[in-house]
Design a protein around this nucleic acid. Structure first.
Length: 447
RNA sequence: GGUGGGGUUCCCGAGUGGUCAAAGGGAACAGACUGUAAAUCUGUCGGCGAAGCCUUCGGAGGUUCAAAUCCUCCCCCCACCA
């Protein structure tokens, strides 16, 4: 079996590790249990959490047992690591609700059957802690002198806002989690983002002090895009894994818009495609590089939403932006639909305008859409109002500007005037295709 | 608790009575160029069917023909001292 650490390093998952050598041996010789904590700060995980999720998934693929630990207890305290501002404190009800959503999403990446992966909530043991016994048994092992030197607290200690006591305790609780998981699940490895280094090391040290045992930690690098942004941020906010918040179509679009420079790196991190194939895309350019982006988008959507949604998103993209045939030589292991045969777009009718946009009609609900009845259109509705209504513009004024700047298209044709009246005459095959700018689409479906 | 400094539009930040919907930068959006990428250039960037009007400068009052700007009270943040 290939050593997992090597796989992790090869795919870009590793920032720092503790006891590199011993950890290597440990992973080579045993079926291990490892854990990563997830903050239940929202009812959905987002793209920013994909690195830890993928790390757990890799673990499982190599026969190890991953534990996803929901921070139901620690979420009540708030982790200050790497944060410039204090976290909002969560109520127990919120944590409970969020944990449910998170489990659902993790189930797509991890197999929780037969104890092959576990999901635990640290509220289980943290809520029961008593202050005095906790301080006496564990608090005495923590040196404040060391804690305040921790990188994870540094930013806050130097900031104007400072660090308050509840947050200062976070590290102790996370260290205690590790101990708990070590005691009850033989978990000897904790992973996390690079901002978690201090918290992870605190756990490693606590276990050494109270159990005289060596346990391990791995941190992931903070993944940013080449333009310096954090992963998973768009104007609309985070890119969520919950299809109700970010539709599979938008999710697919997020990935297809990946910067050229990031394709190889992201492919290694966010898909399971073999590394030799991924390395090959380094040589691609222009259209072929775009094909590689399609594969990235497809594979990422496949993992997060399943094959059916991935196919739909892929077809929707093809119908909106033009079909791409991904050659067999590019990422051959990917199951992305390739070529004529597999790319089924039911084209009942194709209207080609200016040879640039093909409007095809087929059953799909991926592209954002609004349902209207024909009556509403009979008397006509000014374009800028419609654009605002369906959310392609944030206000009437914004819609007006958009149109005046030439960024609005109806059925592929640029509209010249903001008060262009859309009527039932604009309906083509029971829909009207609105476009804002180069890549934002919205369909009006009739009836 | 004391003293001093602050809270401005998405973010940073200028503005100390009218010329302020508020400089400048960033982000964002559109156009051109392209490959649904990046870079670059140009334009836009509170709301309203756009004339004018309305809302905005921590909150509430007040002075004034006129307030982001002056006065009063309150809330919050920071620094130093306790």
């Amino acid at each position: 079996m290939a050593n997992l650490i090597d796989i992790f390093i090869e795919r870009g998952f590793v920032d720092q590790t503790t006891h590199e050598k011993v950890l290597n041996e440990y992973l080579e010789t045993e079926r291990v249990t490892c854990y990563i904590g997830f903050d239940p700060t929202a009812s959905s995980l987002h793209v920013g959490s994909l690195v830890p999720i993928m790390a757990l998934a890799h673990m499982q693929r190599y026969g190890h047992r991953p534990i996803a630990l929901i921070g139901g207890g620690t979420g009540l305290v708030g982790d200050p690591s790497g944060k410039t501002e204090m976290r909002k404190l969560l109520t127990p009800e919120m944590v409970e609700e969020n944990a449910l959503g998170i489990k659902k999403q993790l189930s797509r990446f991890l197999d929780f059957s037969d104890g092959k992966a576990l999901m635990l909530n640290n509220a289980e043991w943290l809520a029961k802690l008593e202050y005095i016994p906790f301080l006496r048994d564990f608090g005495r092992h923590f040196s404040v002198n060391r804690m305040i030197k921790a990188e994870s607290y540094k930013m806050r200690l130097e900031s104007e806002e400072g660090l308050n006591f509840i947050e200062f305790n976070y590290m102790l609780l996370q260290a205690y989690d590790f101990l708990e998981l070590y005691d009850h699940y033989e978990c000897r490895l904790q992973m996390g983002g690079s901002d978690q280094w201090g918290n992870i090391v605190a756990g490693v040290e606590l276990i050494r002090k109270v159990r005289q045992e060596t346990v391990f930690g791995i941190t992931f690098p903070l993944i940013t895009t080449s333009s310096g942004e954090k992963m998973g941020k768009t104007v609309e906010g985070a890119v969520w894994l919950d299809p109700a918040r970010t539709s599979p179509y938008e999710y697919y679009q997020y990935w297809i818009n990946t910067d050229d420079r990031d394709v190889e790196r992201f492919m290694a991190l966010f898909t399971f495609l073999p590394m030799d194939e991924i390395r090959a895309i380094r040589l691609l350019k222009d259209a072929d590089l775009n094909n590689a982006k399609s594969v990235l988008a497809f594979e990422a959507t496949l993992l997060a939403h399943g094959i059916e949604e991935a196919n739909k998103a892929c077809h929707a993209a093809a119908s909106m932006f033009g079909a791409r045939i991904v050659p067999k030589e590019i990422l051959p292991s990917s199951t992305i639909p390739r070529g004529e045969g597999s790319l089924k777009i039911e084209v009942h009718d194709t209207v080609t305008i200016n040879d640039t946009v093909a409007v095809s009609v087929f059953e799909d609900t991926s592209v954002p859409h609004t349902i209207m009845n024909e009556e509403q259109l009979k008397e006509g509705i000014p374009a800028f109002k419609l654009y605002h209504m369906v959310g392609l513009a944030s206000s009437g004024g914004a819609a007006r500007r958009l149109i005046e700047q030439g960024g609005a298209y109806v059925n592929g044709k640029r509209i010249e005037s903001f008060d262009y009246l859309l009527t039932d005459r604009d309906i083509v095959n029971l829909e009207i295709l609105l476009r804002a700018g180069k890549k934002r689409y919205h369909k009006i479906k009739i009836n």
